[in-house]
Design a protein around this nucleic acid. Structure first.
Length: 122
DNA sequence: TCGATGACCTCTA
DNA sequence: ATAGAGGCCATCG
């Protein structure tokens, strides 16, 4: 992928945690997403943490965003803190995510998942 | 190089 | 419950 054709190799400072744009990092996140059991959901933060990137929830979202459709990830099982669907209520993605979750037996009301649907991946 | 922009989170008030 | 401030970091113009 590498959307803009930009190439970013370089400066892997040993001072900072490993960069996310490395394929292994993306795969680690994608893998974690695959481990979320059917009928449950995990937050972006939990996914990032489980993949070895605590505090980088935002990057978990990025990983999902750039994930090849061919991977067929259960992306709908990843939600915002507190079990909130992050997409705008009016958006197509929001409805699609709610639809998929409900089809797995998860109750979704007003963009919120029922308490208990969340798993911390620990 | 910089500033803005996100499928985000946590803490305070 | 809502709002703001900080923090995080890859991408893009």
């Amino acid at each position: 992928m590498r959307r803009g054709g930009q190439h970013a190799r370089a400066t892997r400072g040993a001072s900072r945690p490993p960069p996310l744009d490395d394929s292994p990092a993306l795969q680690a996140i994608w893998h974690v997403v695959c481990t979320i059991p059917r009928g449950r959901a995990a937050t972006y933060g939990a996914v990032a943490r489980a993949a070895g990137f605590p505090g980088r929830a935002r990057q978990a979202g990025y990983a999902l965003r750039v994930a090849p459709a061919a991977l067929k990830l259960p992306w709908h099982r990843v939600v915002g803190a507190g079990g909130r669907i992050v997409f705008a209520r009016s958006s197509r993605a929001h409805q699609e995510q709610a639809r998929r979750l409900r089809s797995e037996g998860v109750r979704v009301t007003e963009g919120r998942l029922e308490r208990g649907a969340l798993t911390d991946l620990t």
